[in-house]
Design a binder for these strands. Structure first.
Lengths: 200, 200, 200, 200
DNA sequence: AATGAATGAGATTTCATTCAT
DNA sequence: TATGAATGAAATCTCATTCAT
């Protein structure tokens, strides 16, 4: 990238980051360009020097959040030992209820709402890319498990199902009132593990 | 219900049904009250004799679609024999790709988008009610399977996980570009069935 | 009046009276024809058998209230002795703060608001008629005072001014936040009485 | 005020002033935002850069009219000599019938109609402020009269009563068909002056 | 005489985006 | 490069009144 482009990229981040708090208050969709400009301390017109349109702003915000989440996930996965531990980290987004994580979760919820509502190919593609990233991570977890002799070989066939199950957990947590995510997870994963764990 | 109320209820349905096609063209959220009135062949003001507000119209449309889908599901479940057959019927919404079913699926997608985006407690509650209905159906399928000696007793513990998995399938189909729903389903369900099927 | 007309007149009153409470809650202007019909226990269309239009309903309501107030005023004036006593009764509408009187006052306020806002000749004429009625009453009070030797002859020239002053008191009470009506009245009337009272 | 703010203030005035004629034709309440925008030669959306809402536009219009009237009043009062002359100037709004003054009078009428009709605390408070301004002016007139030896000391006690009387004159002129404002004023004020004027 | 279903004109307000400076 | 004033399309909802039954 040219130095020019790099600078632009930096400014995009800066602007997007400046409205993090605002977004958690009123939501991505409800934010106005005027608000973004004000909170970023620049003019409304200037926004359009760095972003194509409003959607592009939202895109950048989502991007930052997800990149951050992914980075944290990768780091924590590296420190984990057992397969089950890793799996729990992998499900952290839907299981953990501390403030930090809830922010990520709600951001993801808003992101999904956009993907579902609009015919927005760019967002959809972005979603696919991220999915592949996550799939690769999950696959790695299982492969490591197999290599370490923790899991049966056949367990690799479950990766996609578990990925799907994770999406389902997210959706249910997002759309149901008193959904007990943890209990649903525990029951299901325990059962699955019975199936795929190698008896030593 | 008084005859009065019944008539109102009928008219609501009639109006809501009249815009089925329009909805599939432009989406529930994008519809305008003026359009609904025109297509229903009545005045704009008349709409408000039967609906509280625009949201109420969308609500009725969703309701009709879901009720219809549920009715069909129940009927087809009654005719099915094996547990696996029933399970496939239960997953029909996300698996089948004929026009009729795609309409239901897209309706469900729009519905979810609304549930996720707005602070719309009514929709959310409605979603919860329907979820319970579906959970009951799935549980029944498994209980019948156990009773008929097809499934292990412990398989009942998987009901909630599978329900969640179904949501995940829906979400992935909605939000990913070339997601192979059927293959994901087959792989996962086959594996699960290995676990829970009684060897005869 | 023909018996038919009399019956119509009675029904008008009945309908108008039925919404007295509602009016005090939400105001004459804010009432809807549907509400009037419901509270009167008749159909919306039936309203138009007895009233020309919505304005006509309001007109009837105002009429009833003012007639009632006038009747009470005349009765109480007959029982009063001294001129000053009578004058206080004459100012009762703006001075007294009990619930009953406040209802009349607020009704009058709404009435004035209508007279001022619309170019409503009928209301305006009605207002003039009532004004003449009140002027006659006030004049009578003063004439009696003169005849009884309480007041100077010239005091009759003040009748119109005092009538005007009373309107001013009403307007200020209606439009100012902490207007001390009683104190304004006392100070003014005392001063006036010094001027017009005959020393005995 | 920042230059920013000053410009906004100026533009508010400019927009409000541009619809003066329109208002006299159709009334403040009947004006639409679209009409204001058109007559001001700007877009509908631009209106909302300078005004909170429609009420705010009306508010500005009233403000301008009243400020203008007050300024003229203060100027003319300075030029007047005798107390009676000043008093006549003070009553000018209700007495004079030239076009210029009638516009102010009708503006005041519309303003009062709003104050009486709506639960509009802002307008009511504004009314109170202006009332205090006028009361101060009237008091000054009387104090000067006393100081110059034209009026008795006690006449100061009449200030509030006369202010009230003036409101009454306004209200009657607004709400009665053939009310003879001048005659009512002359008769009343002459009588009052007999009471309060010092014989020299 | 009584009804109440149907009507539709009409007005406010928001906000992403442009463009002249 | 930065700005922010100007834009205007677009959509909801109310309610007095009519009229067929």
């Amino acid at each position: 990238m040219s130095p020019r482009k790099v600078k632009k990229e930096e400014k995009r981040r800066e602007i997007a980051l400046s409205c993090t708090d605002l977004i958690h208050e009123i939501g991505m969709k409800n934010i106005t360009v005027a608000q973004v400009a004000k909170i970023a301390g620049i003019g409304k017109g200037t926004i359009y020097e760095y972003f194509e349109n409003k959607e592009d702003i939202i895109f950048e915000i989502i991007n930052i959040h997800i990149e951050k989440y992914n980075k944290d996930l990768v780091e924590s996965l590296e420190k984990a030992n057992s397969t089950k531990e890793k799996l729990e980290l992998f499900f952290k987004l839907v299981l953990e209820d501390d403030e930090e994580n809830l922010k990520h979760f709600n951001g993801y919820k808003e992101f999904l709402s956009i993907v579902l509502s609009e015919e927005n190919p760019r967002m959809k593609e972005f979603n696919c890319n991220k999915n592949e990233f996550f799939r690769a991570k999950l696959l790695k977890i299982f492969e490591d498990g197999v290599q370490k002799g923790e899991l049966k070989n056949e367990s690799l066939a479950l990766v996609d199902g578990i990925l799907t199950y994770q999406k389902g957990l997210a959706l249910r947590k997002m759309s149901q009132n008193n959904f007990d995510t943890k209990q649903n997870f525990k029951q299901f994963i325990d059962a699955i593990f019975k199936l795929i764990r190698l008896e030593k």
